[in-house]
Design a protein around this nucleic acid. Sequence first.
DNA 1: TTGACATGTTATATTTTTATAACATGATTG
DNA 2: CAATCATGTTATAAAAATATAACATGTCAA
Lengths: 123, 123
Amino acid sequence: MSIEDKFDALFKSLSHRVRRRILDLIKDGPKTTGALCDKLKELDRCTVMQHLSVLEKAGLLVVERRGRERWNHLDALPIHDVQKRWIGPYATQAVEMLQDLEALAQTVESDVQRTVDQPERSK
Amino acid sequence: MSIEDKFDALFKSLSHRVRRRILDLIKDGPKTTGALCDKLKELDRCTVMQHLSVLEKAGLLVVERRGRERWNHLDALPIHDVQKRWIGPYATQAVEMLQDLEALAQTVESDVQRTVDQPERSK
DNA sequence: TTGACATGTTATATTTTTATAACATGATTG
DNA sequence: CAATCATGTTATAAAAATATAACATGTCAA
């Protein structure tokens, strides 16, 4: 599985609100599939299991089998890779954009000031 | 558009490798649609434009029209929201997991030490 | 050991996404 | 102003994701 495949799977798994909700549900501790289905009453159990398997393939969810129960654990480590490759660098970009905007605002401001000091002749 | 719709659109737009490649292409400055198509020769021009519109709907791409050209600018600001709601908190979780692992490793280590000091009788 | 229970598997219908084709428009340039 | 160029629009085919149904398996507990 290439690195691009990995990011495909990660972002795709985060792109559905039900799966994001599942992540929140197991964030503070593992839950059984049954417990998750109870919280997601609007969905068929099979649908929930499909979402779980999407999360598992992306590496965000790890399954521990205990008797007839399946405990779904969060593994947040892959999120680190997303942070390093995509979020961090682009967040930096966003900050630079804001700084550019500030600089632009100051330029405009001083332009206005100069115009007040030395009004241009009308054309 | 709800906040969930927004995250749906953001993660979905990041979940295709072609769109991530486009983001990288416009990261250091805007490019025309034509220039982007040149870099993505394996794809039909229409396909590229569809990807651009997905990015635009997610708010990651802003279009500036100049004559008959279309300049595609990156807007990285929405990435900030992703960072705040999804990456930051889950990265924290990941760090906690690593710390738990370390603690566990130390426990095991001292167990081993204790066992060496006071060997258990075989069963 | 038998019945209820939690989960797993396979198949399939529906919807959405991705890729392309064909045609259209409006700007630039000689 | 006519030809070319960059882009836009609409339609459609193909692939993938989502939701559900029907049936299967292994576990626990009385």
